[in-house]
Design a protein around this nucleic acid. Structure first.
Length: 560
RNA sequence: GCUCCCGUAGUUCAAUGGAUAGAACAAGUCCCUCCUAAGGAUUAGAUGCAGGUUCGAUUCCUGCCGGGAGCACCA
């Protein structure tokens, strides 16, 4: 009911201006926590108290007396310290419930470039990537539903000392026809050797340089490069397979090796100036801006992560046309991107202005932390298959449900588990919780949706619902929790998209499902009094939930 | 050490400076001859500590305590 809200906001503002309140007017018009407080509630009178030098209660009374109340309002009440509670009329409620969703936001019609799920080739896709992908995919779908044109991008790391370690190890272990699993083991082995053996360290460093040179076309292909290329190809294939498994899609790739070239060029072009030479490396003095100094091009002449990201920024702006570029990464990289953005701003202001770097929390066990050094990082595919097995077991036990849905239910549990937490906060990985499918969970949403679909199917009146003309709703149903929740879809959606907060959708979806399930338990629907209106509500719920699930990249299942 | 982020029921999470701090899991008690019990109903349980700003603070400010991250050639 976004339209109603906008109109009401305008009218209230007009009223306030008529009282002689100037520009600094700031009041809220929001959904009250309790539906007893009306459909919208405003703190206008409390806010104006000082400026008008009157008691909030008196201002509220003035408001009620002189407000030019629009048709859609039934009444306005004054409550508590001076809140204005607005109640919509029956007709207005009916209209809102019948309207199509207006999933608009400030991103409607805008072009967005969304970077997420960037893999480190030669390294496994682990739990952290799962978090990144869940947020990234959800944001991509939310923005698309809100009418933005979204292009998703991943930035695979295809050149780094870490990769050289893996290639060195594959060679050292004489692994022929190696698999993706072999690469994972080789990387661990190479990393260990690199730390303890200086001969190995030198060999790996040389190999790293060789890979760079090869990518620049300065070196011919040899046995090492063949290993590198095969590993890169296997890693990429594995990544694509994983994306597919996660029901996620990336439209385009830009590789670090490409970005490194561009980045280095930018650094040299701006040295001295933005960058300066120090101890054989090219650095950015972030400390001048309250940040920290760090290396963009190292003394061996290779661009670091910072130069690579700077190069990526340039490539983005020359290759694509967009209004906003959004990059989603781990919270660990917060300072890195602050530094990057500052340096970018000094080179090209629009680069910084049009780019947002969002961080999500890290996934951590309930005590300690995940680290590849400790070897306790759960892999994405293991988590998924474990979750899937748990679902399959449940389906077999109950004897109900289709096994082919198991994967989607498992995914729903994992994705929702991530999405319900607001993005900045670190997330605790609790296997028990992640594999439980009750209560505030993804499968609970899917289940509620399936129930609604099932009722609609059995009623065999689905077709009539689209043109429900006789909107004869009894008061108890019109005032129900379910109706109350259904009204706010547009409001919540707009807020979630504009603040790039998938968790707001997740929380709303849970409240909505909970209201539906209570309704379902209390009301007989088919062959009951008010059957038509009840079916209408069930249908409205199903349509709303379907969009919410889609926005979170969770499959809406007709049966489960 | 410096900088930044976070501390809400036993646990995992909500709450643009607003009304009685909401859920879920775990614990207790009910509800399947009825549209899917992956459900519903119900009991008990929380803002780290100390100040400050405000008509009003979980939210903003200061200090302390506790946890995490970043801080020069990894990404």
């Amino acid at each position: 009911m976004l339209k109603v809200k906008r109109e009401l906001e305008e009218k209230i503002t007009d009223w306030a201006f008529a009282q002689g309140v100037g520009d600094g007017l700031r009041f809220t018009l929001e959904r009250p926590a309790d539906k007893k407080h009306g459909h919208y509630s405003s703190n206008l009178a409390l806010v104006l108290s000082k400026a008008l030098a009157k008691k909030p209660q008196d201002i509220a009374q003035d408001f009620v007396n002189s407000f030019n109340s629009p048709d859609f309002l039934e009444k306005i009440e004054i409550a508590g310290p001076g809140f204005l509670n607005f109640y919509l009329s029956r007709q207005a409620l009916a209209n809102i419930l019948k309207e199509d969703f207006s999933l608009s936001s400030k991103f409607s019609g805008k072009k967005v470039l969304l970077e997420h799920s960037s893999p480190n080739l030669f390294k496994p896709f682990h739990i952290g990537h799962l978090v990144n992908n869940s947020y990234g995919e959800a944001l991509s779908r939310m923005l698309s539903l809100a009418g933005a044109s979204v292009k998703t991008l991943a930035f695979p790391s295809d050149v780094s000392p870490g990769i050289a370690k893996a290639v060195w190890a594959i060679k050292d272990l004489r692994l022929k026809d190696f698999s993706i699993e072999d690469i994972g083991k080789a990387y661990a082995y190479g990393s260990e050797k690199y730390k303890t053996d200086t001969v190995v360290k030198n060999q790996v460093d040389e190999l790293n340089a060789k890979i760079y040179n090869y990518l620049y076309g300065k070196t011919e292909k040899d046995k090492d490069i063949e290993i590198y290329e095969r590993g890169k190809e296997l890693s990429l294939k594995f990544f694509l397979k994983t994306l597919d498994l996660l029901d996620s899609q990336i439209d385009d790739f830009i590789f670090e090796s490409e970005a490194e070239k561009e980045g280095k060029k930018i650094v040299f072009e701006n040295s001295p100036g933005v960058f300066e030479e120090s101890e054989g490396a090219y650095i950015f003095r972030g400390s001048k801006y309250g940040l920290f100094d760090n290396v963009f091009v190292n003394s061996a002449g290779f661009g670091t992560y910072l130069a690579k990201d700077l190069g990526l920024l340039k490539i983005k702006f020359s290759k694509y046309d967009f209004d906003k570029s959004i990059t989603i990464t781990d919270a660990e990289q917060k300072e890195h991107f602050a530094l990057l953005k500052k340096s970018a701003e000094l080179i090209n202001k629009t680069w910084a202005e049009k780019s947002d770097f969002l961080q999500h929390g890290r996934m951590a066990p309930s005590s300690g932390k995940f680290s590849s050094r400790l070897g306790n990082v759960p892999l994405a595919e293991d988590i998924l298959s474990e979750a899937q097995e748990a679902v399959e077991e449940k389906i077999k036990e109950s004897g109900k449900g289709d096994l082919k849905n198991a994967r989607y239910i498992a995914l729903a549990a994992l994705k929702y588990g991530v999405l319900k937490v607001s993005m900045g906060k670190s997330i605790v990985w609790d296997k028990e919780k992640a594999l439980s499918f009750e209560g505030d969970s993804g499968p609970y949403l899917q289940y509620s949706y399936a129930r609604a679909r099932s009722v609609l199917k059995k009623s065999s009146k689905e077709a009539e619902l689209a043109n429900l003309s006789n909107f004869d709703a009894p008061d108890n149903l019109l005032g129900s929790e379910l109706v109350f929740e259904l009204l706010y879809m547009d409001d919540i959606f707009e807020d979630a998209v504009e603040t790039l907060s998938p968790h707001k959708l997740a929380n709303y979806a849970n409240k909505l499902a909970s209201a539906f399930n209570a309704f379902y338990a209390n009301e007989k629907i088919i062959a009951s009094t008010d059957e038509q209106f009840k079916l209408f509500l069930v249908n409205r719920f199903a349509n709303t939930m379907k969009i919410l699930l889609e926005a979170m990249s969770i499959r809406a299942l007709d049966e489960m």
